[in-house]
Each structure stands twice: as structure tokens, then as C-alpha cells.
Design a protein around this nucleic acid. Structure first.
Lengths: 233, 233
DNA sequence: GAGTGGTCTAGACCACGTT
DNA sequence: ACGTGGTCTAGACCACTCT
């Protein structure tokens, strides 16, 4: 007698993926329920559940209690970008990482930012301009506000060996935030900083992070000309 | 006697999140192992496992067998963007969706694309230029190649009621691809199409999808001026 | 070698949403 | 009401990796 193979949730997931890909189960169509699949594959229902949950998370299936599980009509719902530390991104390419804090002062944030920071009166907070370099070439121009009312220690930070980015990651806890990608044409300042012509198209990432109700920092990253942010599904 | 509360994996996850957020467990520090946490929370180890696995997937924890579980040093590793159908994105804003196929021909793809499509000889494939509109305003300019060697039916498709995008999603299976975000300065053509000035910064999304070994389509989306792609963590 | 996470099982009950 | 996914349990064994 041969010993029965142990079915893994990955094996189930691969099978289901394949049936969807080969259109054996078509978009919008309902697939058998967990108990049936468990019987078919000869495993526990929990194993099937694990497999299908993963596919639903990826947007390939849509599941609803009682209604059952259907193949999603639009299979591509999400793309996940890894957001590495700038230092790691540069060093991963085998280049030498560097940065220079070009400007550092206490400054009154613009009204729109005051609202987002939930600052009552007109209080100045820390403002920084930093240029990041890869092999001494301009890589990224960063404009950052740090809410020194929520993070008083930032006011005394040197940012000599640690960049503002890494300092914050290391010193300050946060639990939420949002990202926005957009594009701009380089202004005279940005062109000078990043060593490109005025009017070049540049990728911009605006990021705000918070900790509980406190806004911690708001930062705009302007990438060098030709920068591409890539991901795979 | 009071009945014991049933501990959910979400409750465990919230607790762990809180301890990390409050720096009770600091970045880089090892946290108790699953068996201990299960005892502490009064639940099964599988429940703790489910909770911690989720946090590890999100990049908040790093887990290795034998080495145990540590709080990640860089808690933000990924940002997930939802990629809706253009039609849905526009209609979700309460605007009227429209599109116009401006150009449609069999054309020899450029060498770089021939390589990616894995086409042997110099064979022409379907080339499309499409403008998408929201309330009749230019929204997105699409340049698309469809590998008619892998998808012969595309050669006969009308793209009258269904946009190329939706036609492909509905008719053709795919199981992989890659995305690249970048920025350009509007050329004369793009400025004309999108109703902006030459040299405006525009966000660009290049996407290639495949099915098994076959490349299906390669598309470049140039978004209207001021378009922002947003996500939250 | 041994400790820790990874997974499977069989059974049970619950929650939600369709009917 | 009732069917389906969602989750918990207790126990077991496996797989990886550190020492």
C-alpha cells in the first residue's frame, strides 16, 4: 500500500489558479464550495479555505457567505509596490549612497498643511530640504515637514550620519499614512537640484505618516529624471 | 460562572499592533514565541499564528524558524494600489465615461517590443491609439500593442462598445505582468490629445501582461495633467 | 540537536446574506 | 430558514535554521 500524499494549501491554490487561467472556471462563474473541493482534493476544508482566501486577497476570486465563491470579472485589482529605504534602494544597485541637508529651519507650515497636522495656532515646525545622491549623482530631492509638537526630539536631531528619513524610521513610531504619485515639470529649483533641464517630467511621491491621531511628518520626494517605479504581479 | 470570551485572531493582531506601536516591543526586538502568546491570550497557537502571519505579510514583523519573530526595523515595506478599470474609476466620480479609438492598424512593433513579445520574424501585430474621456474631457491617452499571434480574435474585434482595455479583460485570460510608473514632459502630440501645454509633467503607466509564456498586450497610459494615484496604509 | 514557525486535520460553532 | 464562508481548537508532525 502506498502512503497517501499530504496535500498542501499551495497545491490546492495552484490547481485553482490553473483552472481559472485555462478558463475551465470562467470569470463571473461560481466554483464548487469548500466542502466539495476538500473532498475532491482529499484534504481538510481548512486547507481549501487557506488556498481560496489567498486568491480572494489577490483579487482573483470573490467570496461571499451563502452566495459562494466566484471567479472575479476583473482579475487585476491591485499592484503592490515595495517602498524601500532610499539608502537600501541605492545600495542594492551597487551605488554609493549619500545625502546633504540643504536647508533646516523652524517655519510656519502652509495653511493646508496646518489643517492636516491639526495644529491649532500658527506654530512653526521643522522644515528640511535634503538632496540624496547615488555615486554623487542627484537621485532624489526631498522636502519635509516634521511635526515637532508631536516629535519634540526632532528639533535637536543632527541628521549628520542618519538621513531625516532613516532617523524618523528609527526613532518615531507610526501606524498609518497615505501616498500619492503624481508628475510635475521640473521648476528651476528642481532642475538645479537634480541636474536636469527645466521642464523635464519628474515623478513625485507625496507621503504623510501619522501615529494615532498625531501627524508625524509630511514629505515630498521628487525623483531624478528617468526614474521608474516598477512592480510585477 | 461567566462564560469565557472567544479570542479572535483580529483581537490578537490588534494587541500585537498596539504593543509595537507603543514601543513596548521595539524595532529589531524579538517578541515571545507563538506558544507563549497563545498561553497569554488564552487561545490556540493556530490563532496566534494567523495573527502574526498577517503582520508579517504587512511587513510589520519578520519571522524565521528557530530564530523567532522580531519587530521589523523598517515597518513600511509595501504600498498597495488598486488598479480599477478606467471606466469604473471615472464612473465612481460620477462622471460620464467615453473613449475614441483614434488609430488602428497592423504594424511592425519596435525591436525592443519584438523581444518582449518573443516574436520570431518581423510580423506585424495590432496597434491602437485610444483616448479616454470623462465628461468629454480628455482623461487618458492609451497606446497599445496586442499580440495578435497569441490572440488572433483581437484582429477582428470592433472596439465599438467595449474599449480595448475592457475587451481584453473580458475575452483574454492572463496570469502575470508588470507595471512601471514614470513621468514625462508632454510632447506636442500628447499635449494635443490631453488638452494641456507642451512640457507639462504627465504621469505614465507602462503595463505588460502575459498568459503563460505568451505576451498578450503591452500598453502605455499617459494620464491627464494633475492626475494623482493615491493609496493609504 | 533542538527550538521555532509552518501546516494539516477533524470537528465544531458562528456570522452573514440570500432566499 | 438555511447554505456558505469564517474562524477556533487541540493535537500532531514537518521544515527550516541556528548553535
Amino acid at each position: 500500500m502506498s502512503r497517501a500524499e499530504r496535500i498542501t494549501w499551495q497545491a490546492v491554490q495552484d490547481q485553482v489558479r490553473q483552472r481559472i487561467s485555462q478558463r475551465q472556471w470562467k470569470p463571473g462563474q461560481q466554483i464548487p464550495h469548500e466542502a466539495d473541493l476538500a473532498r475532491e482534493f482529499g484534504c481538510a476544508r481548512a486547507t481549501v479555505n487557506r488556498a481560496l482566501r489567498g486568491l480572494a486577497d489577490a483579487g482573483l476570486l470573490e467570496r461571499r457567505r451563502k452566495a459562494g465563491t466566484r471567479v472575479a470579472l476583473n482579475p487585476v485589482r491591485r499592484a503592490e509596490f515595495s517602498i524601500p529605504l532610499i539608502r537600501e534602494e541605492i545600495e542594492a544597485k551597487g551605488q554609493r549612497f549619500g545625502f546633504r541637508v540643504l536647508r533646516r529651519e523652524m517655519r510656519l507650515p502652509p495653511p493646508e498643511l496646518q489643517a492636516r497636522l491639526q495644529i491649532d495656532g500658527a506654530q512653526p515646525i521643522l522644515y528640511l530640504q535634503t538632496l540624496y545622491t547615488a555615486d554623487s549623482q542627484p537621485y532624489l530631492f526631498e522636502t519635509r515637514w516634521i511635526n515637532t509638537l508631536a516629535v519634540p526630539s526632532a528639533a535637536a536631531a543632527e541628521f549628520a550620519t542618519l538621513s531625516p528619513n532613516e532617523w524618523l524610521v528609527r526613532e518615531v513610531a507610526f501606524d498609518g499614512g497615505d501616498f500619492t504619485f503624481s508628475a510635475i515639470a521640473a521648476t528651476a529649483q528642481e532642475a538645479r537640484m537634480l541636474g536636469c533641464k527645466i521642464g523635464e517630467g519628474l515623478l513625485v511621491l507625496d507621503r504623510t505618516t501619522r501615529h494615532g491621531a498625531d501627524m508625524i511628518t509630511s514629505v515630498r520626494l521628487v525623483f531624478h529624471r528617468g526614474y521608474r517605479m516598477h512592480t510585477r504581479i
